[in-house]
Design a protein around this nucleic acid. Structure first.
Lengths: 295, 295
DNA sequence: TTTCCTTACGCCTATCGTAAGCATA
DNA sequence: TATGCTTACGATAGGCGTAAGGAAA
């Protein structure tokens, strides 16, 4: 196969068009360079240079291969530098999954700071349900996950509770209870609920169901939707009421929906930061350092 | 420096994620491969792989460098094939210069056939005055030139007379002599002429002046223009008359201009095919083979 | 005779293979 | 004990240098 040493030797000869001068540049003896170029031509199966009394000239194939030599060596050099920067966390891709980000200004702020601090790092941000996030994290498709529950089992996943936020009842402004300052959950035993779907392993869904059961009823779900902001939309349209984290109230202000705290039940839901301890990338660490300051 | 052998060895390990299997693929002993990868990592100054009890895994820098290894080897392979095709005349660039091509259907036909026969060859066609063509040919900026005279001197330029065409007088249809079947040149001693400019070394211009002098006068030039078809335009507008090769009459039919043969003088002008015998490209030869059949 | 590339041939060192070492399950 | 990577060390061959060869001006 063609070694890069041969490419460098060919470049020297092609640029000097003089074996002796090229050999000087390469700090080697001229006959050895002749041999090297002969080897190269033999390996390629094409004559690259024409040598005669008038000197050395590039043949068309030689001119074409010179371009190749330049690009190959250039790309290799670039690749080396790229790999160095990746190892230092200057370049690379950081994939972050999260539940709806809009409710957490400190997270948006950290993302913005990260982009400023590491402009060459491509930030991939994916909003998805907690269960999907957990799979992505374990599968190596995500580096950092902001989700609703502790994934449990997998021993290479580490978690940290970032915050514990109250659960609010979202009501249409037209709802009978819309003007009460606080809500008694048990008053909603017969209400129509809109809910996120029950996905296997979705701690969020389970927590809300458990909350209702503690209040003495099992919620009647009239409509499901994946995204919390879709739920809010459904509430606004009068489909029913919804239980949502307090952060939603901050990000989804609407004149058709009101958010009311619950009384009589201990109702809160956590937001957990999760990461894979086997992930060898230095990028999550860099991100955590910025996150620490924003919290 | 990083040799391509190291790249291939790294690719094998990165794909197998198992030193022994990779060594088998490379037909070498496993310890030697360990050493090779260690050398690579040392040369790069970055760890590419993580080896421990659980096996071998790619570090982020390793994943990045794997991409580099693929592209570098791929580009090298492509470059080798490209050089081969260039040497065979399948790929490359063929630059042809010519006087106005429109009058020579066989030339257009050959160009079309060449494109069909060698679709990967980029045909560069430049129309320019003969003197400029000669310079381009000597300077290596053109491979083949169709021009009006023998460039002389330069001993690495070879010429061939392709055809010798009559010179016609172009007249406005309103001209007094427009309805004569043939023209006596000496009758135009006092006529207004439009002419190509006198460029140093332009045999074409000299030939036409000599023609007039043989008829006993020096033409009064009222307007100059570079391009023959511009001259015809000027004739149509009534600027004067012009002497042009017969091929122009074929390509520039106009109801405002008539072309008349000259009587009483031996008037013809050659079209010469010229090429540089030092040109190592196989493309001109391929072109000539097609040209031969079209003539 | 000088210039400049190639051929001939011996030497050297980078790379390889074999064998031993070491950690883990 | 088996697996799998590394270290140690002797063997080898690809590539280099010196010297001679050959063609042209």
């Amino acid at each position: 196969m063609i070694e890069t040493r041969l490419l460098r030797q060919f470049i020297a000869v092609a640029e000097e068009l003089h074996f002796h001068k090229a050999a000087l540049r390469l700090h080697m003896a001229q006959p050895a360079l002749s041999q090297a170029i002969n080897r190269l031509e033999e390996k390629l199966g094409v004559a690259l240079l024409e040598r005669d009394r008038r000197g050395v000239r590039l043949l068309p194939a030689g001119a074409a291969f010179l371009e190749t030599a330049y690009t190959v060596l250039g790309q290799l050099q670039q690749g080396i530098e790229h790999a160095l920067q990746v190892s230092q966390g200057i370049k690379g891709t950081l994939t972050i999954t999260s539940v709806s980000i809009a409710g957490y200004p400190w997270l948006l702020d950290t993302l913005r700071q990260f982009r400023l601090a590491f402009p060459k790092v491509q930030l991939v941000i994916k909003e998805m349900p907690s269960a999907t996030q957990a799979k992505a994290l374990i599968g190596g498709d995500a580096d950092i996950a902001f989700l609703r529950y502790l994934p449990g089992q997998a021993d290479n996943i580490e978690s940290r509770l970032l915050l514990d936020e109250p659960i609010l009842m979202a009501l249409s402004v037209d709802h009978a209870n819309a003007h009460e300052a606080a809500i008694e959950l048990k008053d909603f035993a017969d209400a129509d609920f809109v809910f996120t779907p029950q996905v296997l392993g979705s701690g969020y869904h389970h927590q809300l169901i458990a909350l209702c059961e503690a209040a003495g009823f099992y919620p009647r779900v009239v409509q499901e939707a994946d995204q919390l902001h879709t739920l809010i939309g459904l509430v606004a349209c009068g489909f029913g009421v919804a239980l949502v984290p307090a952060s939603m109230a901050r990000s989804m202000s609407s004149d058709k929906v009101v958010f009311r705290p619950l009384t009589g039940v201990s109702s809160s839901i956590g937001l957990y930061l999760n990461w894979n301890t086997d992930n060898p990338s230095p990028l999550p660490g860099n991100f955590f350092a910025l996150l620490e300051r924003a919290l």
